[in-house]
Every structure is written in structure tokens, then in C-alpha cells.
Simulated scan of single mutants.
Amino acid sequence: MKAVSVVTIKKELKHRSSEELLELCLRLSKFKKENKELLTYLLFESHDETGYIETVKAEIDEQFQTINTNSYFYIKKSVRKILRNIKKYARYSLKKETEVELLLHFCTALKDFEPSIFKNITLNNIYDRQIIAIKKIVSNLHEDLQYDYNLILEELEEVSYNSKIFKL
């Protein structure tokens, strides 16, 4: 079965009653965990963005605590999974400030992680790519926010730069 476009779905939803829309939403939430998570965000957490950010940050910290540190292979897999979750949570919000906050927290947690990520090229590259992504997002934000976020970014970049110097 081929899915129709969002425009077509929107037109069709306009012709449905509120009861039918309710049933459609509930049925949609039964099929995929992401759909249920998005509905949870929209219904319960979208009105308190700072609370949502703090909840996600706590989950990120918890995920970093459970990483298997026996080898860099397991660390890389876990870090990628955490990053995938962050991107998903940022997509729910659609606010660039939320995405920046979550990515900054991720980079800070990754920087402080033991064993050091700077001893592994792949993890170092993941860290650097996130710094670049944050810079790109921050450049489109309000000037005051840019200034605040750039201060944090400079600290994170300095750590990355210093670790590369020590490798040489």
C-alpha cells in the first residue's frame, strides 16, 4: 500500500468529526512507540518545554551511566543510540533551542565520559560533528541566545582542540 501525501491527509481530516479524530489518534498510538511518545509530548509536555528538556537530560545521563565500557566498540554503539534518541526527542519539540540544549548536554556528557572519547577517532568524530551541528543551529537563533550558546560551545571546542594537541 502506498501512503498518500500529508496535504491529502490534512484535507481528509478536515471532514472528520472530533470523535473520529480521537479514535484515529488512539489507533495511531497503538502501532508505533514513536507515535505514542509524540502524542505524550504534545498532550502532556509541550506546555512546559524546560521540564521536558530536564526530563530528557536526566534520561541521557541515565543512558550514559549504563554504557558498557569494556571496549570502544560497545561505547560507540551506545553513544550512537543516545544520539539517535536525542534527535528523536528534538524532532518532537520542533524548537531549535531544545535541540541545542540537548546536543550541548550530550557533548558535555561525552566530553566527561570515562574512558576518554578523545582516545578513539570515531567517538572524537561524533563529538566534532555534533559541535558543528550545534554551531549551524545556533547561527539561526536570536543574538542573545547565540552569545550564551557560543560561550558553552567555545569551552567544548577548547577541550576537543586540547585533546588533539596532546595526541600529536
Score class of each variant (00 low, 15 high):
116 S>V: 13
101 E>I: 06
27 R>Y: 05
144 D>E: 12
152 I>L: 13
72 Y>K: 14
117 I>C: 08
60 I>W: 00
2 K>Y: 13
156 L>I: 05
60 I>G: 00
24 L>E: 01
37 E>Y: 07
99 E>D: 10
84 R>I: 12
84 R>T: 14
166 F>S: 15
35 N>D: 15
154 E>C: 10
112 D>Q: 14
132 I>G: 01
93 S>W: 01
141 L>S: 02
135 K>W: 02
67 I>L: 11
124 N>L: 07
33 K>I: 09
98 T>A: 12
152 I>C: 07
17 S>F: 02
149 Y>I: 05
127 Y>C: 00
79 V>T: 00
118 F>K: 08
18 S>Y: 09
130 Q>T: 10
123 L>Y: 08
83 L>S: 03
120 N>S: 13
28 L>D: 09
18 S>R: 05
107 C>T: 14
147 Y>E: 12
162 N>L: 15
121 I>C: 04
150 N>L: 01
53 I>F: 04
81 K>G: 06
133 A>W: 04
123 L>S: 06
114 E>P: 04
20 E>P: 11
155 E>R: 14
125 N>V: 15
137 I>K: 03
49 E>I: 15
118 F>H: 11
19 E>F: 13
59 E>T: 06
12 E>Q: 14
46 S>T: 02
91 R>C: 06
38 L>F: 06
62 E>T: 10
50 T>E: 02
49 E>F: 08
99 E>S: 12
122 T>K: 05
132 I>W: 06
80 R>M: 07
16 R>H: 12
120 N>A: 11
81 K>L: 13
126 I>P: 08
165 I>W: 10
42 L>F: 05
166 F>M: 15
43 L>T: 13
21 L>V: 09
118 F>L: 09
58 A>T: 05
119 K>G: 08
101 E>F: 11
125 N>G: 11
120 N>E: 15
28 L>K: 01
45 E>W: 03
152 I>H: 10
9 I>H: 11
98 T>K: 10
154 E>T: 14
14 K>P: 01
71 S>M: 05
135 K>G: 05
28 L>P: 01
58 A>D: 10
47 H>V: 08
6 V>R: 04
102 L>Y: 00
27 R>P: 03
54 E>P: 00
48 D>Y: 10
168 L>A: 15
38 L>R: 06
16 R>D: 14
81 K>W: 13
168 L>P: 04
148 D>H: 09
147 Y>R: 12
155 E>Y: 07
139 S>A: 09
41 Y>L: 10
24 L>S: 03
161 Y>A: 07
109 A>V: 07
36 K>E: 15
65 Q>P: 02
9 I>N: 12
128 D>S: 14
60 I>K: 00
84 R>Q: 13
97 E>K: 05
101 E>Y: 11
48 D>V: 05
126 I>N: 05
27 R>T: 11
7 V>W: 11
58 A>G: 05
